[in-house]
Design a binder for these strands. Structure first.
Length: 419
RNA sequence: GUGAGUGUAGCUCAAUGGUAGAGCAUUGGACUGUGGCUCCAAGGGUUGGGGGUUCGAUACCCCUCACUCACCCCA
């Protein structure tokens, strides 16, 4: 094959596209009900927007970004995630002058240069939301509830909600110190990755899947025991609201998100492994109360999440949820040139009324036209040949029950079966 | 970046070193103007690419490319 898609990118074709559309329209419907408005952000940004927000030492920034110089030698990056561009836009367009909180959603492709596998791609799609301007835990709970409602609308019930609080700039250093202290005499027993993390990013040791590391960190201090007064009460209120909203969740004190900007609330929605492969996180997010300020905006607490569309769609397919594939209302089979013209006129009239009408082509035999009508799932066929032109009638046939009859050519477009 | 597996028809897969096949799909016919079911037929292949061993390679060896899965990381 001469031309193939690049590694880790893929075409989304029918019939899968209907699952995507269903997920997207459901997101729009639910998110709008919560007051989230769509914003469209660029796919390319200055590299430092991502480097500064996600964190210089994270894997995303260190080795996964599609970064290249443009013609004027500026460093450009294909967005690996949506939060940083939305924050940039929020500040650049002075959206903080609008009444708070401001709530947005976006949808589109993200890019990360990784080895592809099930549920992980170089170009992948996210639907994400970001809400700015209040630190109240009510917003955190509302957002989780919105996500739950969205998933329920799509008939997904087997997903698990995990929540945690990773504190703030005040309390996290204390916890980090306690963790380092706990691990100090065990560093040599950690896996090579984790001994590196001990230096750059000790919190990440918590979610290492290596079984010996899991053993070593048994009995390690928990972040939730080290939260400062404010973070602690924020977390407790958040949890009590989840209870009031009847949302079941696990507190997972080992869940550390991979991006540097997170503070306080973090959460993940995961699927059972048999549904989505090893990449089981379908949606994830958290608070980033300092990021707007760090980007040069006014101090503005914020929270958001992103849904991995490919992973979501994979689960929907595994669950065999049925999504309707649009079928034509009527297929117009014609025999001969004159009848072909008459069929074209009828089809055009129906289409202008928004009714999907298909035509037979290429002088195909009536049989093959009917076969095609059947394959398309058409409800009705109209049959027009010389006999019909003579008598001024159209033969109709209902392909679902096999009934047939005649109607005048003049009022074929009013045929009751089509409405 | 690391490791493993797989590449044969549009798809799913056979062919144990001896003439590349089946099912499904496609197109046509049986049924000259009536779909689905059935039967018949046809089209469709440089066996991913390159090299090697051999009288002979889809099969064995080497290289390469692609895909898949997993690690890592993340949505």
């Amino acid at each position: 094959m001469k031309y193939t898609a690049l590694k880790g990118v893929h075409d989304i074709l029918p019939p899968d596209i209907y699952i995507w559309q269903k997920a997207e329209s459901t997101a729009r419907e639910i998110f709008s009900a919560y007051g989230f408005q769509e914003i469209r952000i660029p796919i390319i940004e200055s590299t430092d927007i991502f480097a500064r927000s996600i964190g210089e030492t994270t894997d995303i920034v260190e080795k996964e970004m599609y970064t290249f110089p443009d013609r004027a030698d500026r460093s450009i990056t294909l967005r690996p995630e949506g939060t940083a561009p939305v924050v940039r836009s929020y500040i650049e367009n002075h959206l903080y002058n609008l009444p708070s909180p401001q709530k947005f959603f976006y949808s589109g492709p993200m890019f990360r240069y990784e080895r592809p596998q099930k549920g992980r791609f170089r170009q992948f799609y996210q639907i994400g939301v970001e809400a700015f301007g209040t630190a109240e835990p009510k917003l955190d709970a509302e957002i989780i509830s919105m996500l739950k409602l969205f998933l329920e609308k799509l008939q997904l019930k087997e997903l698990k909600f995990e929540v945690n609080s990773i504190g703030c700039s005040k309390c996290r250093p204390d916890y980090k110190k306690a963790l380092l202290n706990f691990l100090s005499d065990k560093v040599s027993d950690l896996c090579p990755d984790c001994s590196r993390r001990y230096i750059n990013n000790p919190l990440r040791i918590l979610d290492c899947k290596n079984s010996s590391c899991a053993e070593i960190r048994k009995g390690s201090p928990k972040i939730t025991d080290y939260l400062c007064k404010e973070c602690k009460s924020h977390f407790e209120e958040f949890l009590s609201l989840l209870n009031i909203l009847n949302i079941s969740y696990n507190i997972n004190p080992d869940m550390v998100r991979g991006l540097d900007y997170y503070t306080r609330t973090t959460f993940e929605i995961t699927s059972p492994e048999q549904l989505g492969g090893a990449q089981k996180t379908v949606a994830a997010g958290g608070r980033y109360d300092r990021l707007v300020e760090e980007f040069g905006g006014p101090p503005t607490p914020a929270i958001g999440f992103a849904i991995g569309m490919e992973r979501l769609v994979e689960i929907l397919k595994a669950l065999n949820s049925d999504f309707c594939i649009p079928a034509p209302k009527v297929f117009i089979a014609t025999i001969g040139k004159n009848a072909g013209l008459e069929g074209l006129l009828i089809a055009e009239k129906l289409r202008s009324k928004g009714i999907r009408a298909e035509l037979g082509y290429d002088n195909a035999s009536l049989k093959s036209q009917l076969r095609r009508a059947d394959k398309l799932g058409s409800n009705y066929v109209f049959i027009i040949g010389d006999d019909e032109l003579q008598s001024g009638m159209v033969k109709w046939k209902n392909l679902k029950d096999g009934s047939q009859g005649e109607t005048g050519i003049k009022d074929a477009t009013e045929f009751k079966g089509l409405y």
